[in-house]
């Protein structure tokens, strides 16, 4: 393509920072959480403290993740237009048209790539769902933790969930939602690399550097 491209600052520091914190947290959560749910290594040394360390890093990742999510919620109100909470919900007519366009493109029903400067509307909705899953993981995680450490702090962060769901149901869904997050993550990476290659706007690089090279086709 020979169209002139404009270097535009899309993803501000808090957006990129929370993205990568979440990335590493989710890996830590999965590795340690799978062990906590069903221990897959069995050390036999007298000095081992395997479950203790797994739980430690799971909880540590939990607190870091909690801070990351709080930061991102704040930035949904304080950040630029691409980080704003409105991009996650199809509020305007323009957004609903974009949703239709992107969905059609992904299903091979249209040949016009979405060309979004920020998130496509499909991505926005997916991240909204992902955000709800994150919130559930935080609340259910602290609900499980509150069993061993009852107190006001854990009560407000998730202990209240114990009065709505049985503990085994919380455990079950806390485990199951991990797989739902995996599914969204897989699709996310696939679509991001695809759009990057089609649109050539530096999408994959933008999550590191923050800039995209947009052509003017993007919805504003």
């Amino acid at each position: 393509m020979t169209t002139e491209r404009k270097r535009t600052y899309i993803w501000e520091v808090p957006v990129r920072l929370t993205h990568w914190i979440n990335f590493f947290a989710l890996i830590a959560f999965s590795v340690t959480g799978l062990y906590i749910g069903g221990p897959y290594i069995h050390p036999y040394s007298e000095q081992s403290y395997t479950m203790g360390w797994m739980r430690f890093f799971h909880l540590l990742a939990g607190y870091v993740f909690l801070m990351s999510i709080i930061t991102r919620i704040y930035w949904a109100f304080a950040g630029n237009r691409y980080a704003n909470w409105r991009v996650f919900l199809p509020i305007t007519r323009k957004q609903r048209e974009d949703l239709e366009g992107a969905t059609k493109y992904y299903l091979f029903m249209s040949k016009k790539p979405p060309y979004a400067a920020g998130h496509t509307m499909c991505a926005g909705i997916a991240y909204f769902v992902l955000f709800l899953l994150f919130l559930f993981q935080i609340f259910s995680g602290f609900a499980l933790l509150s069993y061993g450490s009852p107190g006001f702090f854990h009560l407000i962060l998730g202990g209240w969930l114990n009065s709505l769901m049985g503990i085994q149901a919380i455990r079950f869904w806390h485990h199951m939602v991990m797989y739902f997050i995996w599914v969204i993550a897989l699709i996310h990476i696939y679509l991001a690399t695809w759009l990057d290659s089609v649109e050539g706007n530096g999408l994959m690089g933008s999550i590191f550097g923050g800039y995209k090279f947009i052509t003017g086709k993007e919805w504003e």
Binding site: G37, A169, F172, H175, M176, M178, Y179, F180, L186
Partner: peptide
């Protein structure tokens, strides 16, 4: 440890279901 996933047979535990989904 956990209940089975309903509607997916007797041995469908959450890990088999989730890994299958992924």
């Amino acid at each position: 440890r956990l209940e089975n996933v309903p509607g997916f047979g007797v041995e469908a535990n959450v890990d088999k279901f989730g890994a299958g989904l992924a």
